[in-house]
Amino acid sequence: MTALLLRRLGAMVLTLAISSFVIFVAIYAAPGDPVTFLIGNPENITPERIAAVRAEYHLDQPLFVQYALWAQGVLHGDLGTSFYYQQPVSELLSSRLPVTLTLVAMASVLFVVLGVSLGVASALSRGGRVDSVITGGTTFVNSVPNFVVALGLVSVFAVELRWFPVAGEGTGFAGRLQHLALPAVALALGSLALISRVTRQTMVEQQTLDHVEAARSYGLGTWSIVTRHVLRNSLGPVVTMCGLTLAGMLAGTTVIESVFGLAGVGSLLVESINTHDFAVVQAILLYMVLAYMVVTILVDLIYPLLDARTLVRSDRA
């Protein structure tokens, strides 16, 4: 278990190092001189000013030195300064993160509860009408782009019915819940098809196994068979899929945030690309990679708790 953990952490550090380098180099290689963005007003561009800015942002150093300086800063929690907001990137990020994380948390609760329930219902009525309605419905919802779903929700529930606000992230706990409800639903709907399909598929496979038949042979009730055998044994793949979806969401709230005008990390990414605020872009990309990896590692660590056999396999590997 510890060996597994160490190996995964090692791989994570390596991937982070590589991806941070890729991100840094890509931005470094971007056409256009960052100095012009930094100074802003073209009238201020004088040779002295350029030299001063270059020295301030270490732009006069070779690439590797710049990367090392940047990486060192990142490790100390210094993500640089936003050219556009004239504010430390870490402050900017930490002011935007709560909205995104709350949104993802709410969406996750929704897609896990709804997705798994739909999958269970569909597995239990396999081949029946409920099954085809669920499969067809979720597949259709999955084919509608989520910004369209989001706008549809806004027009019905915010504009017509006025149950929810049109935009903004709200203040206070209740306000935030109310403001983020529609965005969370829009975000979650896109994952329902996947989660319910995986749940259904795994449960259908599990249903035919001998231990389920054996449980039936000694009179275990249908409900107990479903929960204790079929569903319980399907948890591994289902939890993995939910984890991967959640990880993807952490890096994928951009569209929804921009539809609902939420001041989260995703909309910050769009803004900073539009304003060429590269320090912010770098930091957000790094956050996204990190968040994705942390969640996938957590999923890997949970798996042996759900199915002890995997521990044996991964120890052998």
Binding site: L209, D210, H211, E213, A214, A215, R216, S217, Y218, G219, R228, H229, R232, N233, L235, G236, L306, D307, A308, R309
Partner: peptide, 25 residues
């Protein structure tokens, strides 16, 4: 009746014990 027979009166021993015991419990 089915429940009574399955739970009290008769019991089945299957061929493959490894498949009959739930692997995750």
């Amino acid at each position: 009746v089915v429940r009574k027979v399955r739970s009290e009166l008769a019991a089945m021993i299957f061929q493959e014990p490894r498949a009959v015991l739930n692997p995750v419990r």
